[in-house]
Design a protein around this nucleic acid. Structure first.
Lengths: 205, 205
DNA sequence: AAACTGACTATTTAAACAAAATTATCAAAA
DNA sequence: TTTTGATAATTTTGTTTAAATAGTCAGTTT
């Protein structure tokens, strides 16, 4: 695989784990390299021996989380009963992922515009995976004749993912938020399932 | 109606119009009260005779635009053929509204979080109107028996409006944008019509 | 009195700078 | 090869000052 030794990989993993905990609790900007090193009783300089800089460390953690997410999605989507269930799996898995790592993503909220390209690459990779898996699910269902034949399943999946993404809570005065608050995630989840329900019916004969 | 004289109202209108043009071309922060006054060959002080401050002036313009938008929507939605057409009217009207006034809304992009409450009130009012009109449209269609009966039309409308709101363009790497760029509005419009199509079918038997 | 202005004050923005915190490097040690 | 202490470089934070702009008001014009 990689060029490093086993020992090196283990240490890398330890660093990634410590960094993840810090980022998760305090967010990117409130986490210092000193603190991560301190947690592991290492010198800060060593972190730079294993990772080129702070943002690369963050991205490495992100990549790991994304890989786990993708893995989970692939496992679960191997054995779906029908199209709707497939999308429910996607929605649920993503929901869990976001709830669990909510604070980790403060980096996104802060940097809002101009996230580094590497982050976008990861997002794109996740999206690609979702597209492939869910497009296949649509295709299978179309072949089974349960829904209308679609010439471009990807387009449909993309549209639905966008639509789901748009679901927000109706806050007191009307939806004052760009990023959803953590306490609203459950409500969003419920509404998404409703939207999915209608959307799927719309694909049927 | 209001306490001011006709002359006063006319002048107020002139100021609103001049302010609108400035805000539309240069945005909120790049427009000075001096410039607006200059356009009308008035002293800046007079603007403060008619409006308490700059933000109130902006909001007054906003309110006017919103009123026009609401008016247009109500007129058009008086005579819709079927549910789908009603939503198409909403989508088209909003599309035109956003395209026409795109630069005016830079205020929103800049202030992003914490917009003044008065702005949210206007947004809420627009949303309320859309809710009332489109909920009625759903109810009528349900009564006609063209779609399944719905216990809470408002919930459905809210959900669809959210979903439509979520539709974004797939930029090069995957959708790097929070606010849509002006050049993407057409593509978004097209995708929204597709989403609408599926959603409406999902409401039918 | 209502509409209006010039000259003034108050506030906000920006630029320049210094101090502190944090990131990042590197020669040398284990 | 892995690790560190010391140090350099950069970023963030806070402060000051100057300029631009918002906002006020006594007084003039209609």
């Amino acid at each position: 695989m990689s060029s490093g030794s086993d020992q090196q990989d283990i240490k890398r993993e330890k660093i990634l784990e410590a960094a993840y905990q810090r980022f998760l609790h305090y967010g990117y900007s409130k986490t210092t390299m000193n603190e991560i090193a301190g947690d592991l009783s290492l010198s800060k300089a060593l972190l730079y021996y294993y990772f080129p800089d702070k943002s690369q460390l963050y991205i490495a953690v992100m990549r790991k989380l994304a890989a786990e997410y993708i893995q989970k999605l692939q496992n679960k989507l191997n054995k779906f009963e029908n199209l709707k269930e497939a999308f429910i799996v996607q929605i649920d898995t993503q929901h869990d992922f976001v709830v669990k790592n909510y604070n980790f993503f403060d980096f996104f909220r802060v940097n809002e515009q101009n996230l580094p390209d590497t982050i976008w690459d990861i997002i794109t990779e996740i999206h690609q995976t979702e597209m492939v898996l869910l497009s296949a699910a649509i295709q299978i269902e179309a072949d089974k004749g349960n829904i209308k034949p679609v010439d471009n399943p990807g387009e449909i999946v993309d549209l639905l993912l966008d639509a789901l993404h748009g679901v927000r809570v109706s806050a007191v005065s009307h939806k004052k938020v760009i990023f959803p608050q953590k306490e609203h995630l459950e409500e969003i989840h419920t509404k998404r399932l409703l939207l999915l329900d209608i959307f799927i019916k719309g694909l049927m004969y």
